[in-house]
Simulated assay, not measured.
Amino acid sequence: MHYVLLSMLIGALLGGGMAVAQSSSEPAKPPYALSKFSDQFKAADKDGDGALTREEAKNANLTRVVDNFDRLDANKDGKVTREEIRALLRSRVSI
């Protein structure tokens, strides 16, 4: 149950396959939660490499990322990328 809730939360934050319908005259805007997480991710990524170290996530108070860091860090390089988070979510949702 914990994994399902974690997957739902991270999925909502990162937009794993979610889309927002808008009129064709307006550019698509991400849902608020996605935009907020994207801003938090960027702000936490102090060295601008597109990945978060455990320390960067801790300093930015991204508690769920810190708590699940080892699972999220698929290639065990000490950093978590958005793609690693999406991949974990896909694997948890796939049947």
Rank of each mutant, 00 (worst) to 15 (best):
N61G: 12
K46N: 14
G16R: 10
L14W: 08
Q40N: 15
S94Y: 15
G78H: 04
R92Q: 13
A74Q: 14
D45R: 02
R64S: 15
G15C: 03
A44L: 08
A60N: 00
F41G: 05
M18K: 10
Y32K: 11
R71Q: 10
Y3P: 09
T63E: 13
R54D: 00
V80Y: 00
L5V: 06
R82L: 15
L13F: 02
P30T: 13
M18R: 13
R54S: 13
R92Y: 13
S23C: 09
N68A: 09
L13H: 04
P30F: 03
A57D: 01
L89S: 11
A21D: 07
L5K: 14
K36T: 12
N61T: 12
R90Y: 11
K46Y: 14
V65E: 01
F41R: 01
L62M: 09
N61M: 13
F37C: 07
I10C: 02
A74L: 11
L6A: 06
T81S: 11
E26C: 08
A43Y: 06
A21L: 09
I10H: 01
K36H: 12
F69R: 04
A74T: 12
D70Q: 12
L6N: 05
E56M: 05
A57M: 05
S91Y: 06
I10V: 15
D39F: 05
S23M: 08
G50M: 07
F37D: 01
L34G: 11
G17K: 01
R54C: 05
R92I: 08
L62K: 00
A74N: 14
A19K: 06
K42Q: 13
A33S: 06
E84A: 07
Q22N: 10
A33P: 07
R92T: 03
S91Q: 10
N61L: 14
E83Q: 15
E56Y: 08
P27K: 03
A12K: 03
E26P: 01
S24N: 05
S94N: 12
Y32H: 12
P27T: 05
V93Q: 14
A19D: 10
P30A: 03
K76L: 01
K36I: 10
P30Q: 08
S25P: 01
R92W: 12
S94I: 13
K29N: 13
D67L: 11
F37S: 04
V65Y: 00
D77H: 05
D49K: 06
A19N: 07
Q40K: 10
A74D: 05
D45Q: 03
G48F: 08
L34S: 03
A33G: 09
T53F: 06
R92M: 14
L6K: 11
G15T: 02
E83A: 15
D39T: 12
A60D: 08
I85Y: 00
G11T: 02
L89H: 11
A43W: 02
L14V: 10
D67E: 13
A21M: 07
R64C: 15
T53V: 01
A51Y: 05
S38H: 06
L62F: 05
A74S: 15
A43Q: 11
D45I: 03
A21T: 04
Q22W: 07
H2A: 11
A33H: 02
K36P: 07
L52A: 05
V80K: 02
